[in-house]
Simulated assay, not measured.
Amino acid sequence: MNERTVVPANPIGLRLGYAGLFPFLLGAVLAWLVRDDAHFYTILGLTNYAAVVVSFLGAIHWGLAFRQAVPSPSPYVWGVVPSLMAWVASMMPPNAGLVVHGVMLIVCYVVDRRLYPALGASAWLTMRFRLSAMAALCCFLAAQAT
């Protein structure tokens, strides 16, 4: 497949992507509503989920690089950065770690906005913008609740 061939967004992938917002929304709401004895677990759950998602966003670049006839090293290098940042953020105090996760969700989108068109994945950018904006907002709101 030519790297510049645009592959349409898969409807199942779109539905699952939007469904992936549920833990972010739930975590952000519960961060403000739960009792003190449950607050730690709510924030821990959201932090861990954000770390998994940020890592997934980096891993997508490895998958796209696998499709290249002559792969550039840059998608592989960039692909590990989100995982490393998510790992660091998950060990930070929640009020700071959730902010790092939110920032990384935005950074990943900005990088994807630049790289996806050349890799034939531009059809996913509208969903990526919506999901990144909402997930980052949820991380920031939950960080404020800590």
Rank of each mutant, 00 (worst) to 15 (best):
M1S: 06
M1A: 04
N2S: 01
N2K: 07
N2L: 00
E3F: 04
E3N: 00
E3G: 04
T5L: 10
T5M: 13
V6Y: 07
V7E: 15
A9T: 14
A9D: 03
A9S: 05
N10H: 13
P11L: 01
I12K: 11
L14S: 05
R15F: 15
L16D: 09
G17S: 12
G17E: 15
Y18I: 09
Y18Q: 02
A19S: 06
L25P: 07
L26P: 07
G27K: 05
A28M: 12
V29G: 04
V34Y: 10
V34H: 10
R35K: 15
D36G: 09
D36Q: 09
D36K: 02
A38D: 13
F40M: 12
Y41M: 15
T42K: 03
I43T: 11
I43A: 11
G45K: 04
G45A: 11
T47V: 02
T47R: 08
N48H: 09
N48I: 00
N48K: 03
A50F: 03
A51Y: 13
A51H: 04
A51N: 04
V52D: 02
V53I: 13
V54K: 03
V54H: 10
V54E: 12
L57N: 05
A59Q: 07
A59W: 13
A59P: 09
H61K: 02
H61R: 09
L64N: 13
F66R: 08
R67D: 07
Q68G: 00
V70G: 04
P71Q: 03
S72Q: 01
S74P: 06
P75A: 07
P75I: 14
Y76I: 11
Y76L: 06
V77R: 12
V77Q: 07
W78S: 00
V80N: 00
V80E: 01
V81C: 02
V81A: 00
S83M: 05
L84P: 01
M85E: 01
A86D: 07
W87N: 06
A89E: 09
M91F: 15
M92P: 10
M92T: 08
M92H: 10
M92A: 15
P93F: 04
P93M: 04
P94C: 09
G97S: 08
G97K: 09
L98R: 11
V99Q: 04
V99F: 06
V99I: 15
H101K: 08
G102F: 15
V103K: 03
V103I: 15
M104L: 12
V107Y: 02
Y109H: 06
R113C: 04
L115Y: 13
Y116V: 06
P117K: 02
P117I: 13
L119A: 02
A121R: 05
A121I: 00
S122N: 06
W124P: 07
W124V: 15
L125N: 14
T126D: 14
M127V: 14
M127E: 05
R128A: 12
F129E: 12
F129W: 13
R130F: 15
R130G: 14
L131N: 00
M134N: 00
A135M: 08
L137I: 14
L137H: 08
L137F: 02
C138V: 00
C138M: 03
C138K: 07
L141T: 08
L141E: 09
A142G: 10
Q144F: 08
Q144D: 01
Q144Y: 08
Q144R: 14
A145K: 07
